[in-house]
């Protein structure tokens, strides 16, 4: 389109020049003949260029990311969006830089970039400030300052409100809910949760930790004051070692754990609310289509996932003695094991 427009201007100027200088009439005629001959190829090029190109940058090879990419690919079908390449950063920042350099060296500029995972999102934001970027599957995205004029994202956690709505449905009467968190990492979530819990008539028992070592002590400190434990995606709190400790202590006290990760449910938590990863990809595809169809729009902000799934550990429910009948009607229920 841009090429076409440029050619028209040139033709006009040539006509003016032919009128001014009659001797060049033949040359102008020749030019028109040439333009006429090559016009279809220009038009063809414009038709090809109308198909939007997308690069997918993936942080690493994990199934959740792959599911999201799969969803995105599905969502892009027949939407005039072409996924030109999928780059894998292999979880390595150096690799990420190398990949970005490679993209830049090849002088290929996509219409949109889908960044899957935090590494991909941060590198893409840093390296491609002039290309619209959609990120997804970034755990606790608030920590990474991923806002920007060209950044659109889908949160990888269910909203705090959704989580507590589910908890209320599950536990019924207002209860004391404990949470262990590192204020340097998830302080914002807790601030938001403090307001939300009041709305649901829960009392949030907060316990701050700054090291993995303190988790056991802090948990034992609050365990008798709470009716449920809320595990948030905090990298200080969630480690392989601490997860097993938290699960063990909670089960000993018949305390339900609810969280945003089905992996933690598999480790012994009662229930999790998490996005449907594949549907997140589809949602990202829809957002990509919106962005690409309106060149003036470069960002749609950060959205909540449209579709959530519920993962429930029946074994834990049995040990704790939770009645699952109210949960049976939930549409996207995954029971484990």
């Amino acid at each position: 389109m841009i090429t076409f427009s440029n050619n028209s201007n040139l033709e006009l100027s040539l006509i003016v020049m032919a009128k001014k200088y009659p001797k060049t009439k033949q040359i102008v005629l020749l030019w028109f003949v040439l333009v006429f001959l090559f016009q279809p190829s220009f038009l063809l090029r414009n038709v090809i260029a109308a198909e939007n190109t997308v690069f997918i940058i993936r942080s690493q090879q994990i199934s959740a990311y792959n599911e999201a990419i799969k969803g995105f690919e599905e969502g892009c079908k027949e939407k005039n969006i072409s996924i030109k390449a999928i780059y894998d950063l292999k979880g390595d920042a150096e690799e990420g830089k190398r990949v970005v350099q490679n993209i830049k060296d090849n002088n290929i500029k996509p219409n949109l970039i889908l960044a899957v995972g935090v590494l991909a999102a941060t590198i893409a934001k840093e390296q491609f400030p002039d290309i619209p970027i959609i990120f997804c599957m970034v755990i606790n995205h608030e920590r990474f300052n991923l806002g920007g004029a060209n950044i659109t994202g889908i949160s990888s956690e269910a909203s705090v409100e959704d989580q507590f709505a589910l908890l209320k449905e599950l536990l019924g009467a207002p209860k004391d809910v404990g949470v262990i968190y590192d204020p340097t990492k998830t302080g914002k979530i807790i601030s938001e949760a403090t307001i939300v819990t009041k709305k649901f008539e829960f009392h949030l028992v907060k316990s701050e930790v700054f090291s993995e070592k303190d988790i056991e002590f802090e948990l034992k400190n609050i365990i008798n004051k709470i009716d449920a434990l809320w595990v948030i995606p905090d990298s200080t709190v969630i480690t392989k070692k601490s997860l097993s400790v938290i699960s063990k202590i909670a089960l000993e006290h018949h305390l339900p754990i609810f969280c945003t990760s089905d992996a933690i449910v598999k480790a012994g938590a009662l229930v999790s609310v998490s996005p449907d990863y594949e549907y997140t990809g589809i949602q990202a595809a829809r957002m990509a289509q919106t962005l690409l169809s309106s060149p003036t729009t470069t960002s749609l902000g950060i959205k909540q996932p449209d579709k959530l799934k519920l993962t429930l550990n029946t074994q834990t429910a049995e040990i704790i003695g939770v009645n699952l009948s109210s949960m049976q009607s939930y549409p996207n229920m995954i029971l484990y094991p």
Binding site: Q60, Y65, E94, M137, P233, I238, T260, S261, A263, K266
Partner: peptide, 17 residues
């Protein structure tokens, strides 16, 4: 090569690949 720590954490939260 090493793995980016936040990606390790993400892998843990989202389930091991």
């Amino acid at each position: 090569k090493q793995t980016f720590s936040e990606e390790e954490f993400a892998a843990q939260i989202l389930g091991e690949s």
